[in-house]
Amino acid sequence: MDASIQTRDLTKRFGDFTAVAGVDLRVASGEVLVLLGPNGAGKTTTTRMLASILPPTSGEARVAGFDVVTQASEVRRRIGLLTEHHGLYTRMRAGEYLAFFGAMYGLASAEANRRGQELLEQIGMPDVSRRRLGEFSKGMRQKLALVRALLHDPPVLLLDEPTSAMDPASARLVRDAILQLRSSRRTLVVTTHNLAEAEELGDRLAIIRQGALAAQGSVQELKREHVGPPIMELRAAAPLDGVVRMLPAEVRLLTSGPDWVRYETDAPSQANPRVLAAMAGAGVQVVTLAEVGRSLEDVYLKVVGVPAPREEG
């Protein structure tokens, strides 16, 4: 797959402070990358560099095929940025606001209105275009900001903490809206602190710690790499009585009880059917066979640790 976003040794310094240190990223077209990391890790600075609004101190980045420094305007025409703070003009009406941003992307007023209304309907706010933004709830404001970012139908969407400080219901609405966007062949980079959100939205995750990329991969890859291979737990209807010795060779027995056993395997999709077959062969009735929950939080804490406080971020 061709890379929609590619960075090499991307670095940003503010005076003596290094906010982002040599980040290498590759995001394919249609992929959703979630940037995770503690406060001040450099996620927002990375997003701003990808959005061509902050030039890197060194290294390079290409977004939608264009260089973020030398072709900044081309990049900005092809990205939609949802900033951490919605930054709406509260005296404006929703329709006016979208027409204003549409004009900056060269959309004629009628086209901006049509597209804005279409997106508002998609996002579940069909009747708000005449309402002033000051009357909007926080969730509505964030959703309108998302519409703003989508108005010119950009191939790359950068979403900086799209659900931060939102109540669960509003956050769910915004997350659903983002999930809708996944279906199209649009590249998304989402910055978040919320691990459940990261797991739900991301094809791949990148964990940034103190400005540097500490880990990246799919959730499964990260779990395997940082907290070991998947652990399976089998529960039987009756005591196993030595049946555990019949487990296939590719699984490693970790621990067991009278009617249960836990084992580790690098390839659950191949090993588990063999385990079940062995149990059936021994006349054991299997009640459940499930992966032992190892959360993304375990991975995150392992990678990030307890970070030393940084001066800025």
Binding site: L81, G87, Y105
Partner: peptide, 14 residues
């Protein structure tokens, strides 16, 4: 101060 500048900066306007 109102944090409404960043969305403007992300547009193609120079």
């Amino acid at each position: 101060e109102r944090l409404s500048l960043e969305p403007l900066l992300a547009t193609p306007l120079s």
